[in-house]
Amino acid sequence: MGELDGRVAVISGGTRGIGRAIAEAYLRDGAKVVVSGRDQAKGEGAIAEMNAGDNAMFVAADSAVREDCERLIAETVARYGRIDILVNNAGGSKDNAPVAQLTDEAMDWALKVNLWSTFWCSRAALQHMIPQQWGRIINISSTEGKVGKPGIAIYVTAKHAVNGLTKSMAQEVGTLGITVNALCPGAIETDMMKTDGPPAAEAMGITYEALLDWFAQESAIKRLNDVEDVAIVASLLASDAGAGITGSLISIDGGSAPY
């Protein structure tokens, strides 16, 4: 018997990195899991690797697009009959730059993929969670949702906004059996970080190695986090024991954030 037997979870952007680790943890805990991503072939590959048979499904969806977010929730319910757990994991930033040189397009995309996607998926999922009086919404924010670094203002802004949305939603649904929390990881060297980190570092005026070192040095553990750190908390929050934790911005950053 797993802690999540009978539960259905959706993880946006769950084919790799943090989302993938959460998907695998939920499958181990007995849940049925839907992951989304933009690339159909990669998504199907991820599902095959997770080797969960009928308990896992991929939905091709771009988290920066409202219709895709809403379809992700709809296809989950169509396939598995319900949705209990939503992990708003998709996120990122492109074309980072100091604010003085920042483009509208870069800000817009960062807000779409981090903030709007969380809003769209949550709104759609709540339509199912509220009537069933049970739900878990877990927003993958960042330590940069609490503090700020130069040159990545779009990311910092979007993640702060996600934390605000988290607190407000938690208050709205607190008596309905639904919890809403944000996880704030420190830097993790995922595939996405390896791709997007070097240009972000350039915007910050440093090398990619210096960027990773910056995150490590401001922590107590003096090293980066890993995806499993996030997955264990995501499992706890999704469980019945997580019922008393809501509206929390949980730091998973090796002791970096001051609060």
């Binding site: 553990i221 750190d229 264990i232 908390v233 706890l236 008393g244 998973i252 090796g254 002791g255």
Partner: peptide
């Protein structure tokens, strides 16, 4: 969770279990 080996990267963390009380 905090006592487990898997929590090796958690330190200095203030973990709320407060039903959404704290700002």
């Amino acid at each position: 969770l905090l006592a487990s080996e898997a929590a090796r990267n958690f330190t200095g963390c203030m973990f709320p279990v407060d039903g959404g009380s704290l700002p």
